[in-house]
Design a protein around this nucleic acid. Structure first.
Ligand SMILES: [Mn+2]
Ligand SMILES: [Mn+2]
Ligand SMILES: [Mn+2]
Ligand SMILES: [Mn+2]
Lengths: 233, 233
DNA sequence: GTTCATATTTTGATTAGTCAAAATAAATCC
DNA sequence: GGATTTATTTTGACTAATCAAAATATGAAC
């Protein structure tokens, strides 16, 4: 029932309210959607009439539970579609965001469930972005970034939080994808430069800004050092 | 670039002009698109301005070669998507038309090509509708229907030309799908009734109107009767 | 407590797509 | 040939979504 436009508004409100108190400013929403602020004010009032958001004039906007549910469904479609495009159709991870931006509005809930099953119920998309569960649960785990994690510590990339083609192509070129193991060799705050050391010993320089877009978790101990491997049952 | 609306207009003009001289009446197009005739007149003039159709006032409308090319791409997307939904996601063939009606406007040419390869370059969709080739060739082979083919003759269903859920569910229930072998046991023009005999001897009654929607070709000789089987090379 | 800068809202206009209903052209029938 | 039926076109109005630019509110700075 909801138009593509409405779905996009809700999805952007959801993404922008992640980690905050939930109130999203008109300005932030406008630039996120690439429309002028006046348009957002008008649309948000319409969404509020429809019961999908709560609008606090001159304060911001917030999803209602109905709006949040719809937004989560759209986000789930987006990320499952991206996963399908990369895992099944072997598309470049830098290209799938734009595709999914259209497809998220065109697939039914039935197709969504079948894609989910085909892909084996994945919990993250090719960029490491968490996929909302069918019941609307969205992981909000907080990770360190390459700009903040301790130097020398072995870490594994879990997520790249940046959709732009250019950034993703650069990251792929330098083997910076979810699953990659590495450590921060050096961090120079003055120069705004981070140097990474990859598994093979290769080093990669990265701006601090770029490093902040790459989320990592502590490297799990490799198998031969693991104290008590679980028996396969 | 073209909106979903424009794509739908072009696709419907293409389908309605199949087999005719190419001129489609405003009235036919309006009922096919489920809009009022005045809307069609307005839109067709806009399409003509855009060079996608030629409008002969009070006569009809016809695709230009650019419009025909676009229409064929949309049709190709529609039918490949249907094939994907049935063959890969195992959806019911009665449900996929509505899904494809949306998806045909959301998938890129790149995704189209990858789907085509994944499916093994099929030439017909689950209903037997021919899939336009990547170079815009659309098979226009003429087939007999169950309403016209000789009684007693063993035939094989090649296509079911009717998108409605109800009809397709009925056809599935009675095992009337592309590939099925059968023959017309009896045709009673007065009663408007056709009786089919399936392989297992089971008979199925069918209205003449419904029989006309089912296209067939002469049954190929079964292997044991074939005079000169080609060697597998 | 004014003044200023900034974000937000309002106003007026535009585009795509649609419908209802009136006007018009064309074909058909006597 | 004139009247009638039918399809098409025109006209006027409406909705969703947008922008440009003017008006307004709010918090910060002086
Ligand atoms: Mn989108
Ligand atoms: Mn993603
Ligand atoms: Mn369509
Ligand atoms: Mn089909």
């Amino acid at each position: 029932m909801a138009s593509s436009t409405v779905e996009n508004y809700l999805k952007h409100i959801l993404l922008l309210s992640e980690g905050t108190d939930g109130l999203v400013s008109m300005g932030a929403l406008a630039s996120s959607l690439a429309v002028v602020p006046g348009t957002v004010t008008t649309m948000v009032k319409a969404l509020a009439d429809g019961g999908l958001v709560a609008h606090r004039p001159r304060q911001g906007v917030q999803l209602t539970s109905e709006g949040r549910h719809l937004a989560l469904t759209v986000l789930r479609k987006h990320r499952l579609v991206e996963t399908f495009l990369v895992n099944v159709l072997k598309m470049d991870w830098a290209a799938v965001h734009d595709e999914a931006e259209q497809l998220e509005h065109a697939i039914s809930d039935d197709v969504l469930d079948r894609l989910d099953a085909l892909l084996g119920h994945p919990t993250a998309d090719p960029h490491g972005d968490p996929i909302p569960s069918r019941h609307g649960k969205l992981s909000s785990q907080v990770y360190a970034t390459l700009a903040t994690c301790a130097a020398g510590r072995p870490v594994r990339i879990v997520r790249v939080t940046e959709q732009s083609k250019e950034f993703l192509q650069f990251a792929e070129q330098n083997g910076l994808q979810p699953g990659t193991s590495l450590s921060v060799a050096d961090r120079n705050l003055t120069a705004g430069l981070v140097t990474l050391r990859k598994a093979a010993g290769r080093t990669v320089p990265l701006s601090l800004a770029a490093a902040g877009k790459i989320l990592v978790e502590p490297e799990k101990q490799s198998a031969r050092f693991r104290p008590k491997p679980e028996p396969c049952s």
